[in-house]
Design a protein around this nucleic acid. Sequence first.
DNA 1: CTATTTTTGCAACATGGTTGCAAAAATCAC
DNA 2: GTGATTTTTGCAACCATGTTGCAAAAATAG
Lengths: 142, 142
Amino acid sequence: MVAKITEITALLKSKGLNVTEIRRQLVALLFTPGSALTQKEIEEALEEELGSVDRVTLYRNLRVLLEKQVIHQIPIDAQTVKYKLAGVHKKVDHPHFHCSHCDQLLCMPQVKIAENMLPGGFVIQSSQLIIEGVCDHCNITQ
Amino acid sequence: MVAKITEITALLKSKGLNVTEIRRQLVALLFTPGSALTQKEIEEALEEELGSVDRVTLYRNLRVLLEKQVIHQIPIDAQTVKYKLAGVHKKVDHPHFHCSHCDQLLCMPQVKIAENMLPGGFVIQSSQLIIEGVCDHCNITQ
DNA sequence: CTATTTTTGCAACATGGTTGCAAAAATCAC
DNA sequence: GTGATTTTTGCAACCATGTTGCAAAAATAG
Ligand SMILES: [Mn+2]
Ligand SMILES: [Mn+2]
Ligand SMILES: [Zn+2]
Ligand SMILES: [Zn+2]
């Protein structure tokens, strides 16, 4: 975990963001591949690290990290939005796989939708695909 | 619009739901193919029809209609959920096309995702795909 | 029409989004 | 480093929406 501090600081600075404790911790939380958290989960995790977190400060930091595209927002279902560190993907929007067993959220840029099945006259601008299922790791262990 | 009353009443009764004014109006609102509304849009539309709508009553009716699967909920993006009359689709979850020009939301059960591109070991349970773009009608008229 | 069941409307409380503002922290210029 | 400047934080406050309980009103069954 210690080694990541440099990486996180570099990431923040590369986006022109000042480095503050909450930003460091927030990004650190999401740094693990597959990690994606709801705002409440973030809040609870930060409480443990920092004692207490002001929800407005968290809210504003989530927004600034979204703007700078350090993180992205993924609507898992109608009542759940998860935040995830934005990887270096070619396309802004790409499919995600959500494991219903371990709650990991993985980027699946390789999964394509069959756009050719769209009726004539329809033009696609972007798309958003969430695949719900069981990940490879959970399939083995469980 | 008049002809629909019988249809709507029948739909509600077929689900074992009593027919009340707000339910009739609510379903009527969503009856047009392609129509999908946010809770606020529903509230505003019902205000016009009924003068005023109690938000708790609307909330509870949305829930009961969801439970009975008369309507379904579609997360368009991280901050928008739309309600749409549940059509008679084979699969519970199927892709939807959202027109960014006219705001119509169309069911696209024929669009498939290339599940074979999932890495080995991953098992799919369900999926949720929103395609954002311009619909055939808007492409011609615009 | 009357009795029973369901639904509505309203008060009340919870949670999350959002803004303004002054204090605190971070960064910049010497 | 010190002090000035800019950014960020913490807090109060307000609003929208989710959620429940409860009595009045409406719908349904007989
Ligand atoms: Mn991703
Ligand atoms: Mn549909
Ligand atoms: Zn898993
Ligand atoms: Zn359109």
